[in-house]
Design a protein around this nucleic acid. Structure first.
Lengths: 236, 236
DNA sequence: CGCCAGCTTGAATCTACTCAAATCTTGTGG
DNA sequence: CCACAAGATTTGAGTAGATTCAAGCTGGCG
């Protein structure tokens, strides 16, 4: 599948949508047009606040965000990461309310998601995107419920590699991972200290390298085999 | 909101849908009509198999099922429970594939979900149902990631109480819980042995009673406060 | 009435957590 | 460009929560 990305700098979101469903000309143009009116959200600011009304769906163009749940005593759990090409707040009922807070982890660029009616392929892409979102939530549940620390880390890194790969933001097991170990811990249901120890171990075992926010998984296929991971699939 | 349920024996599914969105006459009739052509699935049989094509969405009329993920070494994680009034396999893209296996835990009765176009309120109910499903997945993630064993059990029981209440299957903190401790453990990311110990403790503390598949939460509001649980909300 | 699945209890072990402190990075203002 | 502060990573030691393995118990059902 070769899609003309027209030398747009910010083509990760478009690339990801095209990877879900090859978009037709109308769909691609709708995305390009929408992305011209973008907004910037600084780290630690909220993209969406739990319990507040959702005005419009958003398309993430750049940066990392996290959907989080905060417990009354301050414990924090990241339910999933929001990456370029992801849609947030796509609901079909009246007066939808955000079911969770989404917070920017890096500077994030978003735009109003182009209307699905602009192109049937775009509507399909949204539907496939929603199915992916669900599949990744299920994967996160299995990860937290039944994997140990080492497996959780490996499995999450492989998932991020897979997702970023669709947006053209990863190649050869290598991708930018602009997170702190603390943030990783909040996603993995572990403490930062333990994540640190397990990362050291993975480094010593030659499984990964991570420096200057650049993660390298040396042999993704081998690691996937080792932790028993299968890639996500939602349509046949 | 008073909805005439016409003395139908099997009104849990209809009650739950009406609790999501008050259905109009056309919507209610569509559900009643659909439920006349129902199928029965025995315990341990699969309602849906991961990776297989989804033919049609189903509406659960009776019984309990579990959406599960099995790891290569046999570890099992239940991602969520499927209860009367729940919809499964509702996707909007072409050639959808089941993202997880759903297995019956009790005898389950399902029917083909009535077409959303039968009534606008029914379409709304489906959308709200989907939003609930997502919210419960998020809740499950926070539960597994950040709650300890006692909190996980309490939180899950309160969620089940809330959900069954919508279907008219729970009152006063009392509901039928036709699961083994092993199954509960698979949902909670714990071992059956540890679930047993924690249940004993909760019983001794006077928080719950559970005998003959009848669960009683003695003071749901107090327990919710104790474990810091807020009910799910998806529209305002 | 005996069997079997599910429940219960005990003891030992282990994974991950907590608390604490040292070191390394990064960004900022002088 | 350096000094410093704040944030992030690393390491150690002790602890706690959950697991594992094992064995005995109970009740529903053929």
């Amino acid at each position: 599948m070769t899609i003309d990305l027209d030398g747009i700098t910010d083509n990760a979101a478009l690339a990801r949508l095209c990877a879900l469903v090859p978009l037709d000309e109308a769909g691609r143009n709708a995305v390009r047009l929408a992305s011209e009116r973008s907004r910037r959200i600084m780290p630690r600011r909220e993209v969406q606040v739990e319990g507040s009304a959702i005005r419009e769906p958003l398309l993430v163009l750049r940066g990392w965000a996290a959907r989080i749940r905060i417990l009354s005593d301050g414990r924090r759990q990241i339910t999933n990461f929001t990456l370029p090409g992801d849609l947030v707040g796509l609901y079909r009922h009246d007066r939808p309310v955000a079911s969770s807070t989404i917070v920017a982890l890096t500077p994030v660029t978003v735009c109003t998601a182009p209307d699905a009616s602009a192109s049937s392929t775009l509507g399909q892409a949204y539907a496939v995107s929603a199915a992916h979102d669900e599949a990744y939530l299920l994967a996160q549940i299995a990860r937290l419920g039944r994997l140990n620390a080492h497996e959780r880390i490996a499995d999450l890194l492989l998932e991020l590699l897979e997702r970023l790969g669709m947006a053209g933001l990863a190649t050869q097991g290598r991708f930018g991972l602009p997170l702190t170990q603390e943030t990783l811990a909040d996603a993995l249901g572990l403490t930062a200290v333990h994540v640190n120890r397990m990362l050291q171990q993975a480094r010593r075992a030659g499984e990964i390298s991570w420096q200057a926010k650049e993660m390298v998984i040396h042999d993704p296929a081998a690691l996937a085999r080792q932790v028993g991971r299968a890639p996500v699939q939602v349509s046949g």
